[in-house]
């Protein structure tokens, strides 16, 4: 392995985790990459973890071959509205969900391959001014749409054939929802963060808002990435894309905050910052399991362990350029790193 292939651990005492390059996927068209994700895909009785890459006008599915190689097997063309993001559906096989739009999401579509004739199909699930969308367990999607006055928070169930079945609405808060997160430990609980920095908790079964709690920072538009409940408290990992540098804690990419849902009081638990000597603000990122990863303004990717708060790996820009995207695979043992030219690098995180 060259120095470029093996990401450096930020300090000697953190060499217990590393990112090791496994493979590189390259779209021959050199189109700009907008997102990357993984999906389980079954064919001929064999279910494999595949990679999905999104460019502005097409989505490609890559199947694994021997020796860490990948082969592009399907490409769905979406020529009318640009692709904004892939929406991972945690327990769904043979289905890719995508959000399309110009400045904000205007459509959510499901992409699939017909089991009858093998043709590629698309199914429109939702249209509107969609502010946030998240794939939930049990084949569901949640989205917030509309204006503040007529905001709609909707849960949509997705069938195996790629159709949207049941629809249920949740009570809208009087604030625009910008992000959602499922609550691990409470199957029927969902949280969302708002444009004026509240954390909203819903009961998914009844649609009730159980509480709306101030996040507690002056920074607007906090984004919730992961939530879990333990010992009667709600732990939430947040990012603050618009935060300004703060003397006391620098500029953490993520923070963990604990809320008491009964009293709406909260306090900071942990900051996830870069180690001394490294700089860069949070651009975008993802949290999965006990790991958080972020692309920074320096063009590097940083990875943190949620329990220790330590930065466990730093992936500097490589010879081809800065990183622009970072996603975890279905498990958090694999990291997908994307660049503007459409290249996607697969790293094992161990």
């Amino acid at each position: 392995l060259t120095a470029e292939q093996l990401a450096v651990a930020p300090s000697d005492n953190l060499r217990d985790r590393s990112l090791q390059l496994a493979s590189k996927l390259k779209n021959p068209s050199s189109s700009c990459a907008v997102d990357v994700s993984t999906v389980w895909w079954e064919s001929a009785g064999c279910t494999e973890l595949c990679i999905v890459t999104a460019c502005e006008t097409f989505i490609s599915l890559w199947k694994p071959l021997a020796s860490n190689q990948w082969r592009k097997v399907y490409t769905w063309h979406l020529t009318e509205i640009p692709v904004i993001q892939i929406v991972p559906l945690p327990d769904v096989c043979n289905l890719v969900c995508v959000a399309l739009g110009d400045l904000e999401i205007g459509e959510i579509r499901l992409l699939l391959c017909s089991s009858e004739d093998g043709s590629l199909k698309q199914s429109l699930v939702k249209t509107g001014n969609i502010k946030a969308v998240l794939g939930l367990t049990n084949r569901k999607l949640v989205s917030s749409s509309g204006t503040l006055q007529d905001q709609q928070i909707e849960i949509i169930s997705v069938s195996e054939a790629g159709r949207s079945n049941e629809r249920q609405t949740l009570m809208p808060p009087e604030e625009t929802i910008l992000a959602f997160a499922e609550v691990e430990g409470f199957r029927d609980a969902l949280v969302g963060t708002t444009a004026v920095n509240s954390l909203v908790v819903w009961n998914l079964k009844t649609g009730q808002i159980l509480n709306k709690m101030p996040v507690g920072y002056s920074y607007p538009a906090s984004i919730c990435h992961r939530a879990y409940s333990d010992s009667g408290l709600l732990f939430v990992v947040l990012s603050h894309p618009h935060a300004k540098e703060n003397e006391s804690c620098g500029n953490p990419a993520f923070r963990m905050r604990v809320f008491n849902p009964k009293t709406a009081r909260s306090t900071g638990v942990m900051f996830f910052s870069l180690p001394p000597g490294h700089s860069g603000r949070y651009l975008e990122g993802e949290v999965k399991g006990v790991s958080a990863a972020a692309v920074l303004t320096s063009g590097a990717i940083a990875v943190w362990d949620l329990f220790s708060g330590q930065c466990t790996a730093l992936l500097p820009p490589n010879a081809d350029g800065n990183w622009s995207l970072v996603r975890w695979s279905v498990t958090d043992s694999c990291l997908l790193a994307g660049q503007k030219d459409g290249s996607v690098y697969v790293y094992h995180y161990s």
Binding site: S231, L233, P261, K262
Partner: peptide
């Protein structure tokens, strides 16, 4: 964090808030 920071904690917060919240 202590209970005094966050107020009284309930392990059954989800059920209790579901009973109290408007539906």
């Amino acid at each position: 964090c202590s209970e005094s920071d966050l107020g009284p904690i309930s392990l059954n917060w989800f059920e209790e808030l579901s009973t109290e919240a408007p539906s």
